[in-house]
Simulated scan of single mutants.
Amino acid sequence: MTRVVFLLVPGLHLLDLAGPAQVFGTAADAGLPYRLAYVADHPEPGDPQETAPPHPAVPAPAPVAVHTAQGVPLQAPAAWPALTAGDIVLVPGWRWGGRETHAPPVSAHTARRLAGHHAAGGTVASVCAGAFALAHAGLLDGRRCTTHHEIQDALARRHPRATVVRDVLYVTDGRVITSAGIASGIDLALHLVASRHGPGAAARIARTMVVYARRNGDEPQASALLRHRAHVSDAVHRAQDLIDARYARPLPLHTLAAEAGVSERTLTRRFTAATGLTPLRYQQELRLEHAEHLIGQGATTDTAARAVGFTDARMLRRLRART
Protein backbone atom coordinates (compact mmCIF):
# COMPACT_ATOMS: atom_id res chain seq x y z
CA MET A 1 0.00 0.00 0.00
CA THR A 2 1.38 3.39 -1.04
CA ARG A 3 0.55 6.25 1.27
CA VAL A 4 0.20 9.64 -0.45
CA VAL A 5 0.61 12.43 2.11
CA PHE A 6 -0.55 15.93 1.17
CA LEU A 7 1.09 18.78 3.07
CA LEU A 8 -1.39 21.57 3.76
CA VAL A 9 0.02 25.10 4.04
CA PRO A 10 -1.84 28.38 4.68
CA GLY A 11 -3.27 29.94 1.54
CA LEU A 12 -3.03 26.75 -0.52
CA HIS A 13 -4.90 26.62 -3.80
CA LEU A 14 -7.75 24.14 -3.71
CA LEU A 15 -7.10 22.72 -7.18
CA ASP A 16 -3.41 22.17 -6.36
CA LEU A 17 -4.65 19.84 -3.64
CA ALA A 18 -7.89 18.49 -5.08
CA GLY A 19 -6.53 17.60 -8.54
CA PRO A 20 -3.81 15.17 -7.42
CA ALA A 21 -5.99 13.91 -4.57
CA GLN A 22 -8.73 13.06 -7.09
CA VAL A 23 -6.23 11.14 -9.25
CA PHE A 24 -4.98 9.00 -6.38
CA GLY A 25 -8.48 8.64 -4.93
CA THR A 26 -9.79 7.45 -8.30
CA ALA A 27 -6.83 5.07 -8.55
CA ALA A 28 -7.71 3.64 -5.13
CA ASP A 29 -11.36 3.24 -6.17
CA ALA A 30 -10.09 1.30 -9.21
CA GLY A 31 -8.26 -1.14 -6.94
CA LEU A 32 -4.75 0.31 -7.04
CA PRO A 33 -2.92 0.31 -3.69
CA TYR A 34 -3.16 3.94 -2.57
CA ARG A 35 -4.13 5.45 0.76
CA LEU A 36 -4.46 9.22 1.11
CA ALA A 37 -3.40 11.21 4.20
CA TYR A 38 -3.14 14.89 5.06
CA VAL A 39 -0.86 16.79 7.42
CA ALA A 40 -0.70 20.49 8.24
CA ASP A 41 2.56 22.40 8.17
CA HIS A 42 3.41 22.97 11.80
CA PRO A 43 6.63 23.89 13.64
CA GLU A 44 7.42 21.84 16.70
CA PRO A 45 7.39 23.77 19.99
CA GLY A 46 10.78 25.46 20.30
CA ASP A 47 11.66 24.71 16.70
CA PRO A 48 14.20 27.39 15.67
CA GLN A 49 13.26 29.63 12.77
CA GLU A 50 15.79 31.67 10.83
CA THR A 51 13.06 34.22 10.19
CA ALA A 52 9.47 34.68 11.26
CA PRO A 53 7.29 31.64 10.48
CA PRO A 54 4.74 32.14 7.70
CA HIS A 55 1.85 31.48 10.09
CA PRO A 56 1.31 31.34 13.88
CA ALA A 57 2.43 28.19 15.67
CA VAL A 58 -0.36 25.84 16.76
CA PRO A 59 0.47 23.45 19.61
CA ALA A 60 0.68 19.83 18.52
CA PRO A 61 -1.00 17.40 18.45
CA ALA A 62 -4.24 19.36 18.12
CA PRO A 63 -5.63 19.50 14.55
CA VAL A 64 -4.58 22.58 12.63
CA ALA A 65 -7.01 24.81 10.74
CA VAL A 66 -5.72 25.75 7.30
CA HIS A 67 -7.36 28.56 5.34
CA THR A 68 -7.18 28.16 1.57
CA ALA A 69 -6.69 30.84 -1.05
CA GLN A 70 -10.28 30.33 -2.12
CA GLY A 71 -11.62 30.84 1.41
CA VAL A 72 -12.59 27.24 2.18
CA PRO A 73 -11.29 26.28 5.64
CA LEU A 74 -9.60 22.88 5.98
CA GLN A 75 -8.43 20.95 9.00
CA ALA A 76 -5.63 18.38 9.22
CA PRO A 77 -3.57 16.73 11.93
CA ALA A 78 -0.21 18.23 12.81
CA ALA A 79 1.40 14.83 13.40
CA TRP A 80 3.00 13.12 10.41
CA PRO A 81 2.07 9.51 9.70
CA ALA A 82 4.74 6.82 9.60
CA LEU A 83 6.23 6.74 6.10
CA THR A 84 8.08 4.11 4.09
CA ALA A 85 10.35 4.41 1.05
CA GLY A 86 7.44 3.59 -1.26
CA ASP A 87 5.32 6.51 -0.06
CA ILE A 88 4.80 9.91 -1.70
CA VAL A 89 4.72 13.33 -0.05
CA LEU A 90 3.10 16.02 -2.20
CA VAL A 91 3.21 19.75 -1.48
CA PRO A 92 0.41 21.79 -3.11
CA GLY A 93 1.06 25.40 -4.01
CA TRP A 94 -0.28 28.47 -2.24
CA ARG A 95 -1.27 31.99 -3.15
CA TRP A 96 1.79 33.93 -4.21
CA GLY A 97 1.56 37.57 -3.16
CA GLY A 98 3.32 38.92 -6.22
CA ARG A 99 6.47 39.79 -4.28
CA GLU A 100 9.22 37.79 -2.68
CA THR A 101 9.58 37.56 1.08
CA HIS A 102 12.41 36.30 3.23
CA ALA A 103 10.26 33.98 5.36
CA PRO A 104 10.66 30.27 4.57
CA PRO A 105 7.57 28.83 2.87
CA VAL A 106 7.30 26.01 5.43
CA SER A 107 8.53 25.53 8.99
CA ALA A 108 11.99 24.15 9.70
CA HIS A 109 10.38 21.02 11.15
CA THR A 110 8.42 20.39 7.95
CA ALA A 111 11.50 21.02 5.81
CA ARG A 112 13.37 18.39 7.82
CA ARG A 113 10.52 15.91 7.34
CA LEU A 114 10.56 16.46 3.58
CA ALA A 115 14.33 16.04 3.38
CA GLY A 116 14.26 13.03 5.69
CA HIS A 117 11.60 11.23 3.66
CA HIS A 118 13.61 11.71 0.48
CA ALA A 119 16.84 10.62 2.16
CA ALA A 120 15.08 7.44 3.29
CA GLY A 121 14.23 6.57 -0.33
CA GLY A 122 10.82 8.23 -0.58
CA THR A 123 9.33 10.35 -3.36
CA VAL A 124 8.54 14.05 -2.92
CA ALA A 125 6.50 16.14 -5.35
CA SER A 126 5.17 19.66 -5.60
CA VAL A 127 2.58 21.66 -7.48
CA CYS A 128 3.09 25.32 -8.39
CA ALA A 129 4.64 27.29 -5.48
CA GLY A 130 5.12 24.03 -3.58
CA ALA A 131 8.51 23.90 -5.31
CA PHE A 132 9.68 26.60 -2.88
CA ALA A 133 9.02 24.22 0.02
CA LEU A 134 11.14 21.53 -1.65
CA ALA A 135 13.85 24.10 -2.30
CA HIS A 136 13.75 25.25 1.35
CA ALA A 137 14.33 21.60 2.31
CA GLY A 138 17.41 21.50 0.07
CA LEU A 139 15.84 19.02 -2.32
CA LEU A 140 16.25 21.14 -5.47
CA ASP A 141 19.96 21.81 -5.09
CA GLY A 142 21.65 20.47 -8.21
CA ARG A 143 18.33 19.27 -9.64
CA ARG A 144 16.10 20.23 -12.54
CA CYS A 145 12.69 21.53 -11.51
CA THR A 146 9.79 23.73 -12.58
CA THR A 147 6.98 25.80 -11.14
CA HIS A 148 4.24 28.19 -12.25
CA HIS A 149 5.42 30.41 -15.11
CA GLU A 150 4.73 33.57 -13.11
CA ILE A 151 7.16 32.61 -10.33
CA GLN A 152 9.86 30.77 -12.26
CA ASP A 153 12.17 33.80 -12.08
CA ALA A 154 11.62 34.10 -8.33
CA LEU A 155 12.48 30.44 -7.79
CA ALA A 156 15.65 30.79 -9.86
CA ARG A 157 16.71 33.92 -7.94
CA ARG A 158 16.06 32.54 -4.48
CA HIS A 159 17.55 29.13 -5.19
CA PRO A 160 20.35 29.53 -7.74
CA ARG A 161 21.59 25.95 -7.18
CA ALA A 162 18.37 24.66 -8.75
CA THR A 163 18.01 24.43 -12.54
CA VAL A 164 14.57 25.85 -13.35
CA VAL A 165 13.08 24.37 -16.53
CA ARG A 166 10.58 26.77 -18.07
CA ASP A 167 7.28 26.22 -19.85
CA VAL A 168 6.84 22.50 -19.18
CA LEU A 169 4.11 20.63 -17.36
CA TYR A 170 6.36 18.87 -14.90
CA VAL A 171 9.94 17.75 -14.40
CA THR A 172 11.17 14.48 -12.92
CA ASP A 173 14.65 14.40 -11.44
CA GLY A 174 15.15 11.15 -9.58
CA ARG A 175 12.59 10.95 -6.80
CA VAL A 176 11.86 14.68 -6.89
CA ILE A 177 8.99 15.72 -9.17
CA THR A 178 7.90 19.34 -9.58
CA SER A 179 4.99 20.60 -11.67
CA ALA A 180 3.84 23.91 -13.06
CA GLY A 181 0.74 25.79 -12.02
CA ILE A 182 -2.59 24.68 -10.63
CA ALA A 183 -4.09 22.06 -13.01
CA SER A 184 -0.69 20.58 -13.88
CA GLY A 185 -0.86 18.75 -10.55
CA ILE A 186 -3.30 16.38 -12.26
CA ASP A 187 -0.72 15.69 -14.97
CA LEU A 188 1.95 15.09 -12.33
CA ALA A 189 -0.26 12.64 -10.43
CA LEU A 190 -1.18 10.78 -13.63
CA HIS A 191 2.52 10.52 -14.45
CA LEU A 192 3.21 8.99 -11.02
CA VAL A 193 0.43 6.46 -11.55
CA ALA A 194 1.71 5.65 -15.05
CA SER A 195 5.28 5.20 -13.84
CA ARG A 196 4.14 2.72 -11.19
CA HIS A 197 1.26 0.94 -12.89
CA GLY A 198 1.64 1.58 -16.62
CA PRO A 199 0.13 4.04 -19.11
CA GLY A 200 -3.05 2.02 -19.45
CA ALA A 201 -3.91 2.53 -15.78
CA ALA A 202 -3.25 6.26 -16.05
CA ALA A 203 -5.38 6.47 -19.21
CA ARG A 204 -8.31 4.77 -17.48
CA ILE A 205 -8.09 7.15 -14.52
CA ALA A 206 -7.86 10.15 -16.84
CA ARG A 207 -10.91 8.97 -18.71
CA THR A 208 -12.85 8.50 -15.45
CA MET A 209 -11.92 12.06 -14.48
CA VAL A 210 -12.75 13.35 -17.99
CA VAL A 211 -9.25 14.79 -18.46
CA TYR A 212 -6.48 14.16 -20.94
CA ALA A 213 -3.59 11.85 -20.13
CA ARG A 214 -0.36 13.81 -20.39
CA ARG A 215 3.34 12.98 -20.40
CA ASN A 216 6.56 14.44 -19.12
CA GLY A 217 7.23 17.99 -20.31
CA ASP A 218 10.55 16.84 -21.78
CA GLU A 219 8.71 14.43 -24.07
CA PRO A 220 6.02 15.22 -26.65
CA GLN A 221 3.09 16.58 -24.66
CA ALA A 222 0.63 15.50 -27.35
CA SER A 223 1.17 11.77 -26.91
CA ALA A 224 -0.87 9.11 -28.65
CA LEU A 225 -2.90 8.76 -25.47
CA LEU A 226 -3.86 12.42 -25.86
CA ARG A 227 -4.12 12.81 -29.62
CA HIS A 228 -6.64 10.05 -30.23
CA ARG A 229 -8.92 10.32 -27.18
CA ALA A 230 -10.88 13.44 -28.16
CA HIS A 231 -14.03 11.55 -29.16
CA VAL A 232 -17.20 10.24 -27.51
CA SER A 233 -17.40 6.66 -28.82
CA ASP A 234 -17.57 4.33 -25.80
CA ALA A 235 -16.89 1.28 -27.96
CA VAL A 236 -13.71 2.83 -29.33
CA HIS A 237 -12.62 3.96 -25.86
CA ARG A 238 -13.03 0.39 -24.60
CA ALA A 239 -10.90 -0.93 -27.45
CA GLN A 240 -8.30 1.75 -26.81
CA ASP A 241 -8.23 0.88 -23.10
CA LEU A 242 -7.32 -2.70 -23.99
CA ILE A 243 -4.68 -1.63 -26.51
CA ASP A 244 -3.20 0.87 -24.04
CA ALA A 245 -2.88 -1.84 -21.41
CA ARG A 246 -1.54 -4.55 -23.75
CA TYR A 247 0.11 -2.64 -26.57
CA ALA A 248 3.16 -4.94 -26.50
CA ARG A 249 1.08 -8.10 -27.04
CA PRO A 250 -0.66 -9.46 -30.12
CA LEU A 251 -4.25 -8.22 -30.17
CA PRO A 252 -6.42 -9.83 -32.88
CA LEU A 253 -9.27 -7.74 -34.17
CA HIS A 254 -11.85 -10.20 -32.83
CA THR A 255 -10.45 -9.76 -29.31
CA LEU A 256 -10.77 -5.99 -29.57
CA ALA A 257 -14.26 -6.24 -31.03
CA ALA A 258 -15.36 -8.51 -28.17
CA GLU A 259 -14.00 -6.01 -25.64
CA ALA A 260 -15.80 -3.17 -27.40
CA GLY A 261 -19.04 -5.15 -27.67
CA VAL A 262 -19.42 -4.69 -31.43
CA SER A 263 -18.60 -6.63 -34.58
CA GLU A 264 -15.14 -6.51 -36.11
CA ARG A 265 -16.42 -4.55 -39.10
CA THR A 266 -18.26 -2.04 -36.89
CA LEU A 267 -15.23 -1.56 -34.65
CA THR A 268 -12.93 -0.90 -37.61
CA ARG A 269 -15.37 1.63 -39.04
CA ARG A 270 -15.98 3.43 -35.72
CA PHE A 271 -12.32 3.33 -34.69
CA THR A 272 -11.19 4.86 -37.96
CA ALA A 273 -13.90 7.53 -37.83
CA ALA A 274 -13.04 8.46 -34.22
CA THR A 275 -9.24 8.40 -34.38
CA GLY A 276 -8.27 8.53 -38.04
CA LEU A 277 -6.42 5.22 -37.57
CA THR A 278 -7.17 1.54 -37.74
CA PRO A 279 -6.79 -0.37 -34.44
CA LEU A 280 -3.53 -1.89 -35.75
CA ARG A 281 -2.11 1.50 -36.69
CA TYR A 282 -3.07 2.88 -33.28
CA GLN A 283 -1.24 0.00 -31.59
CA GLN A 284 1.78 0.65 -33.79
CA GLU A 285 1.79 4.32 -32.77
CA LEU A 286 1.81 3.33 -29.11
CA ARG A 287 4.63 0.87 -29.72
CA LEU A 288 6.61 3.44 -31.65
CA GLU A 289 6.14 6.07 -28.96
CA HIS A 290 7.27 3.74 -26.19
CA ALA A 291 10.19 2.53 -28.30
CA GLU A 292 11.32 6.13 -28.89
CA HIS A 293 11.24 6.71 -25.15
CA LEU A 294 13.39 3.61 -24.52
CA ILE A 295 15.86 4.62 -27.23
CA GLY A 296 16.04 8.08 -25.68
CA GLN A 297 16.98 6.39 -22.39
CA GLY A 298 19.87 4.55 -24.07
CA ALA A 299 18.31 1.32 -25.34
CA THR A 300 19.34 -0.06 -28.73
CA THR A 301 16.81 -0.24 -31.53
CA ASP A 302 16.74 -4.05 -31.32
CA THR A 303 16.17 -4.00 -27.56
CA ALA A 304 13.46 -1.36 -27.79
CA ALA A 305 11.71 -3.23 -30.60
CA ARG A 306 11.52 -6.43 -28.53
CA ALA A 307 10.39 -4.54 -25.42
CA VAL A 308 7.38 -2.99 -27.17
CA GLY A 309 6.29 -6.16 -28.95
CA PHE A 310 7.87 -6.04 -32.40
CA THR A 311 9.24 -9.44 -33.43
CA ASP A 312 11.50 -7.80 -36.00
CA ALA A 313 13.43 -4.57 -35.45
CA ARG A 314 13.07 -3.81 -39.16
CA MET A 315 9.41 -2.88 -38.59
CA LEU A 316 10.43 -0.38 -35.91
CA ARG A 317 13.05 1.11 -38.23
CA ARG A 318 10.49 1.47 -41.01
CA LEU A 319 8.01 3.20 -38.68
CA ARG A 320 10.69 5.54 -37.36
CA ALA A 321 11.74 6.43 -40.90
CA ARG A 322 8.13 7.05 -41.89
CA THR A 323 7.58 9.51 -39.03
Rank of each mutant, 00 (worst) to 15 (best):
T301W: 04
A21E: 06
R314H: 09
C145F: 11
T311K: 15
A18Y: 05
A189H: 07
G121P: 15
R227F: 00
T110A: 06
A30F: 13
R175L: 01
R229T: 12
L140H: 10
L286M: 14
A260I: 15
P252M: 06
A201Q: 07
I177Q: 10
G122S: 08
A230F: 05
T208R: 14
E264D: 13
V127F: 07
D241M: 07
W80I: 01
L286H: 09
V211A: 05
A57D: 15
P73Y: 10
H148K: 00
A111H: 05
F24K: 11
D234F: 00
A180C: 07
D141T: 14
A194P: 13
Q75Y: 00
H191N: 08
A245P: 03
R318L: 12
P220L: 12
H231D: 03
V236E: 14
Q240D: 08
A248Y: 13
A57Q: 14
L256C: 03
H197D: 12
A120V: 13
G185N: 04
G71L: 05
H148W: 09
A115R: 15
D47R: 13
A230W: 06
H148N: 15
F271I: 02
P279T: 13
H109N: 03
V165C: 01
D29F: 04
A201H: 04
P45N: 08
T275S: 06
A62V: 10
P33A: 11
A129R: 14
D153L: 03
T301Q: 13
V66W: 10
Y34H: 10
A154N: 11
D187W: 03
L277A: 03
D241G: 03
D87E: 12
R287E: 00
T2Y: 06
D167F: 00
Q284G: 05
T323C: 03
L90A: 08
G217M: 11
G31K: 09
I205A: 11
V262L: 11
R158S: 01
A57N: 06
E285H: 13
R112A: 08
A202I: 11
L36F: 07
P199G: 02
G31S: 05
H117N: 01
T51L: 09
T311F: 05
V176M: 10
H231P: 15
V164G: 03
G98P: 06
R113A: 01
L36T: 10
L17F: 08
A62N: 05
L190N: 03
T123A: 00
L134C: 07
A305F: 14
C145V: 08
A307S: 09
A201R: 04
V124F: 12
A180S: 15
A65V: 08
D244I: 02
A115P: 08
P250G: 02
A76W: 14
H254G: 01
V58M: 04
A78P: 04
T26S: 09
L267A: 02
F132V: 02
L15W: 08
P199H: 15
A120I: 14
A305C: 10
V4E: 12
